[in-house]
Structures are given as structure tokens and as C-alpha cells.
């Protein structure tokens, strides 16, 4: 301890990419050290998979059979759960003081958000692989190219959703109940309106309208097409537009919240 230098070598000036990478690495580390945490947010979707898929067997209008229709929905769902809850990590760090500690560093505020949001991609991919691994033995038909493109779209969506979740944590100013009330209030309507668990084709008109206003609907439709190996132009494009919209909105709102944070 006697050889400590007073001025450590500062190699890099603060820049957005480097700062983002630092935050990303820090956020990812506990996931890598404790991979079970990723599986945890999947318990609910897997239960839905086990209970709903058999129910859907006789529902008409499900192209390619119940499992083929249901699995993309479940993949989206597990990401939806994970990304929408991710703000709770920040919430906890706001309560313990470790978020404040990052705010006194020279790192860019936007990097504090982006690094965290980009990390959401990792659980998205891991969860998708797990779901697929579970269903393939049950005669699920895997279309690799479409699935890869689908997961890319889902990653974009989840970066946005994760950012919104972080923005919510910042807006809640450390109050758990605000965070969870808002998160739950939004999560289930958005999930159901997207036709993730049940098709909304035969729903009443107002519900179909609500469904059409939900960006997630387009993502889910596009995922279904892609998982089935179909690159139907307008469906896939609509999905990417919706995912990009949520991503841009999330980064904008989240970045603003982080800059305003004190």
C-alpha cells in the first residue's frame, strides 16, 4: 500500500461508448455470476406455456397448431416480464445509495441508462433459447433464420421497454409501491391486448381497436410470422417499426429521467 500513486493513470477521456460499455459490463456481471436470476423471471411464462398450450388445442384460427402459435408469444412474454421489472434493480440501488455513487462519477448520464438498457438483450436471448429448448422435443418446428431475425427485433423492443422501466424507477424516486403499481397496471393489459395468450381476432370492436394501438401487437404478430419461417414483408416491417418506436421512446424518456435525476 506504500506504492500508491496519487494520480492514477487516466487513459480514456469520458466518452459515451466507453461509459456505456462500463455500465453494461457492471450490469451484466451479476447475471453471469448468478445465471439463475434470468430463469427466475421465466417461471411465470413457462407455467403459462404448460397450462395454456393444451387449452389452445381446439381454438380455431391458430395457424400451424397451438404450440407453433403460442411459443413466439411466450418468448415475447418472458422478455416482457424481465424487461418491465428490470427497473426494480435500479430502484434498489437508489435506495441503497449505489446509484448516487455512480452519479458522482464523470460518466455520461445517458450512458448510465444505455448501458443498463442494452444489458436487457442478454436475458432476452437466453430466455428465448430456454423456451425453444423446452418446446422442441414437443414437436415444435424451429425455423432458424426467422427466429434469429425475430430475436433481433425483440432485442430492440426490450431495450426500449427496459429503458421505460428504468425511467419509471427514477420517477418513483425510490418508492417501491409506485413502481410496482404502475408496472403491474400496464403489464397485463398490454400483454393481453397484444393477443399473446389468446387471439383477439374474434374480440369485440373496441378491444380490437385497443389492440391495434398497442405497439406490442405488431411485435407479437411479426414474431409469429418469423418463428414460422415466413418473412412476410408488411408484418415484419410493422414489427420492426413498432419495436424501433418503443426503443426510441424508451431511450428518450429514460435518458431524460436520468439527466434530471438527483
Amino acid at each position: 500500500m506504500s506504492t500508491a500513486t496519487l494520480t492514477p493513470t487516466l487513459t480514456a477521456p469520458s466518452n459515451l461508448a466507453r461509459d456505456t460499455a462500463i455500465v453494461f459490463g457492471r450490469e451484466l456481471r451479476p447475471v453471469l455470476r448468478d445465471p439463475f436470476s434470468v430463469v427466475f423471471s421465466m417461471i411465470q411464462p413457462l407455467v403459462f406455456l404448460g397450462l395454456f398450450a393444451p387449452l389452445l388445442g381446439n381454438v380455431p384460427g391458430l395457424s400451424g397448431g397451438a404450440l407453433q402459435w403460442f411459443v413466439p408469444g411466450i418468448v415475447v412474454m418472458s422478455c416482457l416480464f424481465g424487461a418491465s421489472m428490470t427497473g426494480s434493480n435500479l430502484l434498489f440501488e437508489m435506495q441503497t445509495g449505489s446509484h448516487e455513487r455512480t452519479l458522482v462519477t464523470p460518466m455520461r448520464r445517458s450512458a448510465l441508462l444505455m448501458g443498463r438498457a442494452l444489458k436487457e438483450i442478454v436475458p432476452v436471448l437466453v430466455q428465448a433459447v430456454i423456451v425453444i429448448a423446452v418446446v422442441v422435443p414437443f414437436s415444435f418446428e424451429l425455423h432458424v433464420a426467422g427466429t434469429v431475425v425475430g430475436l433481433l427485433m425483440l432485442s430492440v423492443f426490450c431495450v426500449g421497454l427496459g429503458s421505460l422501466s428504468y425511467a419509471l424507477a427514477l420517477a418513483a424516486k425510490g418508492a417501491d409501491w409506485i413502481f410496482w403499481t404502475v408496472q403491474q397496471t400496464f403489464l397485463f393489459p398490454i400483454l393481453l391486448l397484444a393477443g399473446m395468450l389468446l387471439p383477439v381476432d374474434s374480440a369485440p370492436g373496441w378491444l380490437q381497436t385497443a389492440s391495434r394501438l398497442n405497439p406490442l401487437t405488431y411485435v407479437v404478430d411479426a414474431e409469429r410470422a418469423l418463428f414460422a419461417g415466413s418473412f412476410d414483408g408488411s408484418t415484419v416491417a410493422a414489427g420492426f417499426v413498432a419495436a424501433a418506436f418503443v426503443c426510441a421512446l424508451g431511450l428518450l424518456v429514460g435518458g431524460r429521467a436520468m439527466r434530471a435525476a438527483d
Partner: peptide
């Protein structure tokens, strides 16, 4: 700056932080 709370994230390891 060492604030009133804990600077190190609770789900991290000390050296990593």
C-alpha cells in the same frame, strides 16, 4: 464522495465494484 448509503451494489462483488 462517500454518501450516507452503500456505494457498492448489493448484488455485486466488492472487488468488481
Amino acid at each position: 464522495y462517500i454518501g450516507q448509503g452503500n456505494g457498492a451494489g448489493h448484488n455485486q462483488r466488492g472487488r468488481d465494484e
